[in-house]
């Protein structure tokens, strides 16, 4: 059987090289070619926001979802976007994997007609700027590029102003001073060449997370032979951790390279981290309020527990 697998990332992105593409190969090998994939990267098959609907309706059979694009259908899964929790891709991925295995986040995906196979996260967002940003007072009234409502509120919590600017325009906006700072996943920094236009990059902040979940349409998934499902799952568990570690390592290398280029790659002090976390507290409160009550609180408690181990 051949599954059509949708993906909004390009095949050159580390998430694809160390994650999606590797998983495809691992599954094809483990099943002896009984299960194979047609991979549609770079939004070829569906826009990032349409990937979930595409799987549900049979345009695709499987997809690597960016859960942030599906908060309308998967509100609880957006817990990973909250700032201040996981500190590395590995830590976040272990928490996500546990929560996808059972509990409300898995149920929410199942209710959407798709079954999660594995999930992983990007290393936490860091702040890039032309000055060192530490205590919330440094952030006062700065124009910060954010993507999505959670990050906009993160900026607001720190006294800054969240600004939405399309990805391809961010470079120019920083270069020309339209933006004072950018919240960005470090792995994506070279792709947009942002290291050319900033002088300070934080390395141990946690300005929000980003999760990917590989899903297969449930009726199709259930019709697969148990051996094949196990192979997908086993490969998934392994690849999830692998891509997380690979990202953490690659970020380490990137940071070393930037440091050599004379960029101030800095760690927040414990005081700064505490103050930032306190400032961003309101984002979590708002999230619980908006997602509505008990279930959200339950998911959050579990998430906090898992990320503080």
């Amino acid at each position: 059987e051949t599954l059509r697998l949708g993906d909004f990332q390009s095949t050159s992105h580390i998430v694809s090289v160390e994650g999606t593409t590797k998983w495809i190969a691992a599954v094809e090998e483990a099943t002896g070619g009984e299960l194979s994939f047609q991979h549609f990267p770079s939004e070829q098959a569906a826009k990032s926001k349409a990937q979930l609907d595409a799987v549900k309706s049979g345009i695709l059979d499987a997809a690597l979802l960016g859960t942030i694009y599906h908060t309308d259908a998967l509100p609880l899964n957006s817990v990973v976007g909250l700032p201040g929790y996981y500190g590395s891709a590995e830590e976040g991925t272990m928490a996500l994997q546990a929560m996808l295995a059972e509990g409300p986040m898995r149920d929410e995906l199942l209710a959407s007609g798709v079954t999660p196979v594995f999930g992983f996260v990007l290393p936490p967002y860091q702040v890039l700027a032309k000055q060192r940003l530490g205590m919330p007072s440094d952030w006062e009234a700065l124009d910060v590029r954010t993507s999505g409502a959670t990050q906009a509120m993160t900026a607001r919590g720190l006294g800054a102003v969240g600004i939405s600017i399309p990805g391809p325009e961010v470079y120019t906006a920083v270069e020309r001073g339209r933006l004072d700072a950018v919240l960005f996943p470090l792995a994506s920094v070279p792709g947009y060449k942002l290291n050319e236009v900033v002088s300070h990059i934080s390395t141990n902040g946690s300005f929000g997370g980003y999760s990917f979940v590989m899903v297969v349409r449930s009726d199709l998934y259930d019709s697969l032979a148990p051996g094949i499902r196990d192979a997908m799952k086993a490969a998934g568990d392994e690849i999830a951790l692998h891509v997380a570690k690979a990202q953490d390592e690659s970020v380490g290398e990137l940071v070393a390279g930037w440091k050599a280029d004379g960029i101030d790659t800095y760690e927040f002090t414990d005081d700064e981290l505490a103050a930032l976390r306190a400032g961003m507290e309101l984002v979590t409160e708002d999230w619980v309020g908006r997602m509505g009550g008990e279930k959200a609180q339950q998911v959050l408690d579990r998430y906090i527990e898992l990320t503080s181990q």
Partner: peptide, 21 residues
Amino acid sequence: LGLRPALAVLERTFFDSSSSF
């Protein structure tokens, strides 16, 4: 792909193509 998936493409293509700043 078959008729059903093809129809599903029509669900949100116009919205996704126009909803862009």
